[in-house]
Design a binder for these strands. Structure first.
Lengths: 231, 231
DNA sequence: AATATACTGTGTCAAATTTACACCATTAAA
DNA sequence: TTTAATGGTGTAAATTTGACACAGTATATT
């Protein structure tokens, strides 16, 4: 923006694509809308930005109000600004993604009345979504697919302690292809940022696997000289 | 955006980081502002989005009005939404980049009175810019650095016919490091999307180099199975 | 005509990385 | 004790990357 301000020229919103991983499946968080337009439709959690909050702050607040989730690391990925994307007027939306451990999170549920409820849905079988939310989802999914290879996003989706098989099945779910077990392990371990624990998986009816932890300090050290990958 | 529209809540703008390549140097397009705030400061070309145009359309229009440049392939890369980024009020801006051949373009010059003039400036020696434009530039520069490796953006900066040395020096300018000549050529040619022409460089006082063309059809064919890289 | 200048264009080998590939070990349940 | 299910492991070939140097050619200069 370059000159004296005109009056406001648009409505500005945030939409969130929240990924979770559960039972070997990649899921996203959807809400059931409780207001027109698209009342009763499924949609991404999203709402309008306030004038006195940054868009990053707005993303956190909105996600919380619609789903009860807090303190996720949200990352902007694209802004959608087609004139007709909202049936009631000009609304420009900034899309964010976040990744979250589904297990160990309290149930998701809306805090405000704008959503009837919120729930996890597998990405492989998404219904039609309100507005242009299908496109927003797909754009976001493509982003995390790419980023999986150069950012430590997998570890935000897994429990703190995880097995290498779990890690692999997450990669397979995101990339949508099978990986070779031995090569995958060799590679992951070669990075040096996985810490092997003196602990094993519990509650399985077969040989328990070793648990690992992601060591963010080491990761940062190893990749500190890379280009800034944020934004 | 999810519910009935409130009145407009913000001003919405576009800022452009336009890269060009000339005399072995990477440059961006700056304007000299002609209005408050930041009157007489240098800034990225940018302006306010109209209500009846998509943000992609706005980006093209605004760039044209401030610099006379048209029909560039502009690519959104980040949205800046800090509350205080504009001294006069809430302005959210979507930043775009584009790449352009400086040579063979007509002179850049503003069409509207919002900018006094427009000119190319080397990226290595940028002055202080208005607003948060220095941050916007840096974010954009990091983006194209990354994308250089998986998108054919180099060829938008070079003339249609170019030598491998020119291509290499562009890579060196963007990545800010020296590359090995033989390895660079081997690799580039191995992709198979460079077409060798029956033509040589002219007007140099030493052995003329072969000219090449970028074959976008072949490029697309080769990489058609990759993830969608737009957005 | 000879020489200087400046850049073009090329190949090999070692090292590192990636890929393909299969079976025994362990645990719990039946 | 047997079955079911997954855990955990190594090697060799192929590919890719990285390091490295000099003769060839067009022009300008003398």
């Amino acid at each position: 923006m370059e000159v004296k301000l005109p009056t406001f020229n648009s409505v500005f919103s945030i939409d969130c694509v929240i990924f979770g991983f559960e039972a070997g499946e990649l899921k996203i968080l959807l809400i059931e809308r409780n207001e027109e337009p698209f009342k009763d439709w499924l949609a991404l959690p999203g709402y309008i930005v306030e004038q006195d909050e940054s868009i990053d702050d707005a993303a956190e607040r909105i996600l919380y109000e619609l789903t009860g989730l807090r303190d996720l690391h949200m990352q902007q990925f694209h802004t959608f600004g087609e004139v007709d994307r909202h049936p009631q007027g000009r609304v420009i939306t900034v899309a964010y993604y976040a990744l979250i451990r589904i297990n160990g999170q309290k149930e998701v549920k809306p805090i405000t009345q704008y959503a009837k409820n919120a729930f996890w849905h597998p990405v492989n079988d998404l219904p039609k979504l309100a507005f242009d939310h299908t496109e927003i989802f797909e754009t976001g999914f493509n982003k995390i697919r790419r980023r999986l290879n150069y950012q430590p996003i997998a570890f935000e989706l897994l429990p703190e302690k995880f097995t290498l098989t779990q890690l692999q099945s997450l990669y397979e779910a995101v990339l949508n292809k099978k990986l070779d077990k031995r090569n995958f392990r060799k590679k992951m371990l070669s990075y040096g940022f996985l810490k092997e624990l003196d602990e094993k998986q519990k509650g399985v009816s077969y040989r328990a696997a070793k648990l690992y932890k992601f060591d963010r300090r080491k990761y940062t050290k190893i990749f500190q000289n890379d280009l800034n990958l944020d934004k």
